[in-house]
Design a protein around this nucleic acid. Structure first.
Lengths: 239, 239
DNA sequence: CCGGATCCGAATCGATACTG
DNA sequence: CAGTATCGATTCGGATCCGG
């Protein structure tokens, strides 16, 4: 038994030993968007020390979560193995859970292309039946967000450079939406689309403002219900 | 922004800041079984330093995940808030995921009542339609495991002392099953119930051996499929 | 620029002892 | 029972450096 092991024969313990160390799950979060180079990961996690990134990538490889793939004439990329891909529903659920505890951003907090992409996946409701194609700006991040037939597609536009995220879909977006981090309140249902515009949480700088109705229906996180079960629960193991 | 913050405005980041520190999620795992006293938690996590347990409980309270409830004439218990309860599907999914990477136990690894209880919840397939009532022993841990009408009920029998986990169901179990940690192979489908008996992974010390068929159907974790999608994936963000 | 490796002070963790 | 206090061992964070 390793010195730093939790010392239990248990699936949760094993999982936490594989991906529970600091920064590890955030690396996985970014890799869930797509394969990334060492430098991409460093940019997507601005506060990670370079030795920690290096060390985590090694550990995640040993754990069978990540794989290192040399590219023809352009360096190498890290990508998730199928086992690592299986973390997607867990990371999305964690994002939904953490979202509920998110307040306003602290001074210096950033939004990255990968974190925003995963945030959209986190809050995506495929059943809304809506259909749209917009360009979404939050801070410096610009994404093309397309919802069609219950499928969400996100392409990263900037920064820094031209189209990232595969082939840019043809045509123009129906609307260009600029939001601050307060867009969180719209997704949480704390404001209606009309209120969000009035309060400058979101602005539709090109296209019809009604697009926000579809957006709010499609990206919505319902608050965790408070079942008040625990109030009446009798403690266990007491005489 | 706190010094140790990840510096991102993101749900996943927030979640990891709340429950990502060492030992935190294992405390949550045990509390998902039921309210626990400080000493219960310490016993359920034999390798946790007492100052870390103390510190985590404080942080989890500040995060709104855990609540401290004074009990009438018998100390106090920690229990999950509704927000903490919402972690249940995430912890179960993590347990399923980690299970796939679990090999044989290391020297000194233990199985605790709470970890085994959660492991059963992790692998429970409510759709199997089976119905049974057994006493399950793994190492020192003894549980009464009842499956009926698609509902799993687990009561902790020992150790250390008499009935824990609410009122002990009346009547006798249909079977008493004694297993080693190798029961994992049965749950993973690596052995059939008959093979599990032959290989001494599991013994039915009282009752019919066929009960293991129902057990194996009811507690089964299918391996993560390897879609081999990633093999052909083109890296993103490269010219 | 890419993909790290090295070094060092700061913060956290782990083990043990001790207390109301 | 429910924790504090202390202190050495590890890990983390920040900066710098280096070969391609």
């Amino acid at each position: 038994m390793a010195a730093r092991s939790y010392g239990q024969y248990c699936g949760v313990t094993t999982a936490v030993e594989l991906i529970g160390e600091r920064w590890a799950l955030l690396i996985v979060r970014d890799l869930l968007v797509g394969p990334r180079r060492y430098t991409d990961l460093k940019q997507g996690l601005p506060r990670i020390p370079t030795n920690i990134l290096s060390s985590r990538l090694t550990q995640l490889q040993e754990a069978g979560v990540v794989r290192r793939v040399p590219m023809r004439n352009c360096g190498l990329v890290y990508e998730l193995t199928p086992y690592g891909q299986a973390l997607e529903p867990i990371v999305l659920a964690l994002g939904r859970w953490g979202f509920q505890a998110m307040g306003d951003p602290d001074e210096g907090d950033v939004v990255t292309p990968d974190s925003l992409t995963m945030a959209l996946r986190t809050s995506f409701q495929s059943g809304s039946g809506d259909r749209f194609d917009i360009e979404l700006h939050v801070g410096d991040v610009a994404l093309r967000v397309i919802v069609d037939a219950g499928v969400l597609t996100v392409a990263q536009l900037a920064p820094p450079a031209p189209p990232v995220g595969g082939a840019l879909p043809p045509g123009e977006p129906e609307a260009v939406v600029v939001a601050g981090p307060g867009i969180r309140r719209l997704i949480a249902g704390a404001v209606t689309p009309a209120e969000a515009i009035a309060q400058d949480v979101v602005a539709v700088v090109r296209g019809e403002e009604r697009i926000l109705d579809a957006f709010a229906r499609t990206f919505h996180i319902a608050p965790i219900p408070a079942p008040a079960i625990l109030e009446s629960l009798e403690p266990i193991g007491l005489p």
